[in-house]
Simulated scan of single mutants.
Amino acid sequence: MSTESDIAALGGRTMGTRWSVKLSAPRSRDLHALHAGIEAELKRVVAQMSTWEDGSDISRYNRAAAGSWQVIPEDFWNVLVAAHDIARRSDGAFDPSVGPLVALWGFGAQAGAQRVPDAAQLAEVGSSCGWHKLQLDVQKQAVLQPGGLQLDLSAIAKGYGVDLVSRWLRRNGIAAALVEVGGELHGYGRKPDGHPWRVLVESAPEEGAGAHYPPRVLALDDLAVATSGDRWHHYEHDGVSYSHTLDPRTQAPVTRAAAAVTVIEREAMHADAWATALTVMGAQQGLAFAAEHGLAARFVSRGSNGLEESMTPAFQQYLDADRQ
């Protein structure tokens, strides 16, 4: 039986996007079993946290009676605890309860018409939102439904799916893999040639032609990276572009959003959520916040002279390390 390793590529669809895994495995390894195991991990995320599925655990919570405590499964709990923590630390720039406002502006699973809502609509829908309404019972692994609170974990669940798959692969003897779900990445281990997985940082739409800086490449040696920005979902109304990224503090889509915000973390779940939070904060405030809190973050913004790149010292260190 051959023990030589090759790089195999697997893929599929999940959470409204695509997943892919490159892994180093002996030529004798059953790739069908690995594919099935990866799919099972991702289906668990969907079954627990997809607002597109009426029967999911998050949908059941969103329909629960006011005043009831809902015991939730472990993966849902892990993500909700992380989301609540990042909401607190970001002072509400990240908020897992803004789903109804996102829908009101025309985005997400429950999207209405893509239009600018009036002040009365915003006040009515916004009154039921707010991360501070989340009450968690750690002992019982339960969350209170105060009445009308609608959770949406789409800005963190894909990253968690990446983490789940990476951990599952490790438990099943895969010593090196690069896992991606919808652009969120985690790489660990060494390829058969002895090198770590190297990835090009996801860019702004026009970055290749209009940038005054080189492409940024990262070595993912047990690291995760996520990118947020205005290239993915937006619409125009009366000449104004509205992004799918909502600022919970203003109850409106982010204006003058950075073209791309990239965050490096140990876990893709945290990279995913922080990329969203920093996008909401904006390039200036977000960069200052990230630097103060030791986050590895890169911003690409549109300035008067084209694209402008800025990054925290923590992000720069990863680029420096890759050049050594």
Rank of each mutant, 00 (worst) to 15 (best):
M1I: 10
M1A: 15
S2N: 07
S5T: 15
I7G: 06
A8I: 13
A9N: 09
L10R: 09
R18M: 02
W19P: 10
A25T: 05
D30P: 06
D30C: 07
L31I: 11
H35T: 12
H35N: 14
I38D: 00
A40G: 03
L42Y: 07
Q48C: 04
M49L: 06
D54T: 10
S56H: 08
I58E: 00
N62Y: 04
A64T: 03
G67P: 09
W69Q: 06
Q70G: 03
D75W: 14
A82K: 12
A87I: 05
A87Y: 02
R88N: 08
F94P: 10
D95Q: 04
V98Q: 04
G99R: 05
A103W: 00
W105R: 04
F107A: 00
F107M: 00
A109V: 05
Q110F: 13
Q114L: 00
P117A: 06
D118A: 04
A120Y: 07
L122Q: 03
E124Y: 11
G126Y: 03
C129L: 00
G130S: 07
K133W: 01
Q135S: 11
Q135Y: 04
Q135M: 10
Q135G: 04
Q139K: 13
A142P: 06
L144F: 04
L144M: 01
L144E: 00
G147I: 11
L151I: 04
S154R: 08
S154I: 03
A157P: 03
Y160H: 15
V165N: 03
W168H: 09
N172L: 01
I174R: 00
V179M: 03
V181K: 09
G189R: 00
P192A: 03
D193G: 09
D193Y: 07
P196K: 05
V199D: 07
V201Q: 13
V201D: 14
S203E: 14
A204S: 06
A204Q: 00
P205I: 14
P205M: 12
E207H: 03
E207V: 05
G208E: 13
A211E: 01
A211R: 15
L223E: 01
L223Y: 07
A224E: 08
A226W: 15
R231F: 15
H233N: 09
H234Q: 11
Y235M: 02
H237L: 15
D238E: 12
G239Y: 12
G239C: 10
G239R: 11
Y242P: 03
Y242L: 04
S243M: 12
S243H: 13
P248D: 04
T250C: 06
A259L: 03
A259E: 12
A260W: 09
A260H: 07
V261D: 04
T262F: 10
V263L: 03
V263P: 00
A268N: 07
A268D: 00
A271C: 13
A273D: 06
A273N: 09
W274D: 01
A275M: 06
A283C: 13
G286W: 13
L287D: 02
L287S: 08
A290V: 05
E292G: 05
L295F: 15
L295V: 14
L295W: 15
A296S: 10
A297Y: 05
A297C: 11
F299A: 05
V300C: 14
E309P: 00
E309Y: 09
E309L: 14
T312R: 06
Q317T: 14
Y318T: 11
D322N: 08
Q324C: 07
